[in-house]
Nucleic acid binder design. Structure first.
Lengths: 162, 162
DNA sequence: CCCAGACTTAACGTTCACGTAAACTGTGGC
DNA sequence: GCCACAGTTTACGTGAACGTTAAGTCTGGG
């Protein structure tokens, strides 16, 4: 059994930098740059030194882009946020590994705090966007009214309504 | 009557660049830069050449910042959006001035289009933010569960729960 | 009239987030 | 083994959005 090759818990497919870049709509340069910043490292390297990314790395890349474009974070801030998420993953390992309870509490507390700060920030942004939406809709309505007025006038007419 | 000075339809107070900058939380350099880009010009200049901003200019500045920080537009895109709003104001004048109907329709159509594009963009952003909010809340819940598990263990205990 | 403090222009500097070129190496299908 | 194509490092370049002097001018209270 096992159609692919051996037993080995099904080797997860790895991607070359070009594939990842295209899938995420970024350049290879961007991926290397993120690695340079310590933001995103490939799962492994080929013997020749070529980067090999796992599916999970792609997810992380998309997350980076989301934080960047959606929330307007710079790459430094993103590193902090992702750091917290990494710690959360670390917590899970420590947890399963049976680390001391104090340490676990500590990591958890920090993760919670970052999560809450992010939550508040997103909420604030949502409120401002809702306000903007209302304004835009008000505009749209004014435009519609204006358009009806214009439609009422024959092309060539001179007077203007109140 | 008229406690301030003369009759004169109540001269609207003007602000110096430093005041405006502080009120909006930007630097004077930023204001001059925006003017250089044709984004924001002061209502008038003193005889000596000092910029004098009206309240309306401050509003425009805040709008610029909003488009920049909330929607992530660059200053070029913002110029386009504000251009449409200027045209909307222009439409009003042309309207009251009795310009030809064709021209009015034209301006109105463009304003409507920009408004709709902006509306769609904001809506898209809102949807993505909602999704992010859900994710964050899910995280928060997981954290809470984890915290309850931790609370159940006495400090010093060794076993880990499932 | 004086003078501190706010303003002016002009011009060069800086940070971020990559883009781009050069010179070289690895990968894999025939 | 060949060869095209994809990848590598190193390093300088770039556009956006300002920051930062420098050197001089304006403003307004005493």
């Amino acid at each position: 059994m096992m159609t692919t090759s051996e037993t080995e818990t099904q080797e997860p497919r790895l991607f070359r930098i070009g594939e990842v870049a295209e899938r995420a709509g970024v350049s290879c340069r961007t991926l290397r740059y993120y690695e340079e910043l310590g933001l995103l490292a490939p799962a492994e390297y080929s013997t020749g030194g070529a980067r090999r990314y796992a599916e999970q790395d792609v997810a992380r890349l998309l997350r980076i882009r989301e934080l960047q474009e959606l929330l307007g974070f710079d790459l430094g801030e993103i590193k902090v946020v992702l750091g917290a998420e990494d710690q959360r993953a670390g917590l899970r390992s420590e947890y399963l590994g049976g680390a001391d309870v104090g340490r676990r509490r500590e990591i958890l507390a920090e993760a919670v705090e970052i999560n809450e700060r992010l939550r508040a920030l997103v909420a604030a942004k949502q409120r401002r966007l809702e306000e903007m939406t209302r304004d835009l809709d008000d505009n749209a309505e004014r435009y519609a009214t204006r358009a009806r007025e214009l439609a009422g006038e024959d092309p060539g007419a001179e007077r203007a309504g109140s």
